[in-house]
């Protein structure tokens, strides 16, 4: 944490009586790709708006590039590019004209805008569609144009709100790779929010999980799984051909195996969590019990599991 470019201290925001963001502390370093994860309505967008000074916090402070975002939003907006979710463009203008407008608003000289527009459209792979009206753009193209729209301003920080929303799977992969590449090439700090865990997992250096206005955990994915799952860091799912026998006999027997922490059975599958990797012992046990094992799967913790695990521990919050 030697060089934080975004620093949030005790950020709090109410919408009426609802607490949208609750005492949020977060710092993001220069050149990092940070993923802000959370379900819809968790307060991700609100947090982003406060970083840009577009919404005033009720308490706390957001400092971006060393500037107080609430007090001096214009200076922050000069350094930070923000792509809102479902970013729109002026449909009656071409992509180039849209970019030119943004360039002019940022005080870029008329001659330079044209050159930069060509350059950025090349970067995002839209140079063929430069003179097309944006009403003819597909959703994925619009997202790319949104990125070009950020890059033309040469920002220090890019904030992308739900950048993967509404693009098809292969488009998402391309788009995220593009962000990753650009970030690494130009040393950009990227903050992206999403409720899609897989997407973010691919490119983020660090993620923070954000639910009901609170940042529950943050760190890289390995640290996160360690934090959430504690000692039970291995999970094995054993699938058998016939349905598992009813009653707790089998469950108790599995529980008795040294190293097993928890057992959950449903239908044909038994999920066993254990403190060390005892998969061979488990398989041997099942075979000895005369069960026809059709599949054994050692689970690795992706964000999905982290996410799910969090909601398992906090059933109250799922309904919210």
């Amino acid at each position: 944490m030697e060089n934080p470019i975004i620093q949030l201290e005790g950020l709090t925001k109410y919408y009426g009586k609802v607490k949208a963001v609750d005492n949020l502390h977060l710092s993001i370093n220069k050149g990092e790709i940070f993923g802000l994860l959370g379900p819809n309505g968790a307060g991700k967008t609100t947090t982003i708006l406060m970083m840009l000074g577009l919404s005033d916090p009720n308490a706390g402070q957001a400092t971006v590039c060393g500037i107080n975002a609430t007090r001096n939003p214009i200076a922050v907006k000069r350094k930070v590019g923000y792509m809102p979710d479902n970013a729109g463009f002026y449909d009656n203008l071409t992509a180039l004209e849209n970019l030119q407008y943004i360039g002019r608003l940022n005080g870029i000289g008329e001659k330079e805008i044209e050159a930069r527009a060509h350059q950025t459209m090349e970067m995002v792979g839209l140079s063929d569609a430069l003179h097309k009206k944006t009403s003819a753009y597909s959703r994925g193209m619009k997202q790319r144009l949104g990125l070009a729209d950020l890059l033309i301003r040469e920002p220090e920080v890019m904030i992308l709100d739900e950048p993967t929303l509404g693009i098809d799977p292969s488009g998402i992969r391309d788009f995220l790779e593009l962000i990753h590449r650009l970030s690494r090439q130009q040393g950009l700090t990227v903050l992206l929010s999403s409720h899609h865990l897989h997407h973010v997992q691919q490119i983020c250096d660090r993620v923070g999980i954000f639910v009901e206005g609170k940042l529950l955990v943050q760190g890289d994915i390995n640290t996160l799984s360690g934090e959430l799952f504690g000692k039970e860091s291995f999970e094995v799912a054993v699938t058998v051909r016939e349905a598992l026998p009813a009653g707790d006999g089998l469950k108790a027997a599995v529980q008795a195996i040294p190293g097993v922490i928890g057992v959950q059975a449903s239908g044909h599958t038994m999920d066993i969590s254990c403190s060390s990797d005892i998969t061979p012992d488990l398989v041997r046990f099942f075979v000895r019990q005369g069960l026809n094992v059709t599949g054994v799967q050692r689970k690795e913790y992706g964000l999905d599991e982290i996410y799910q695990r969090f909601f398992e521990n906090n059933p109250k919050k799922v309904s919210a």
């Binding site: 840009l52 577009l54 214009i74 200076a75 479902n86 970013a87 729109g88 463009f89 005080g107 729209d149």
Partner: peptide, 13 residues
């Protein structure tokens, strides 16, 4: 059309 948000994110009052 989502352009207001983009406009507000530019350095304009």
């Amino acid at each position: 059309s989502g352009t207001l948000m983009r406009l507000l994110a530019q350095p304009v009052y």
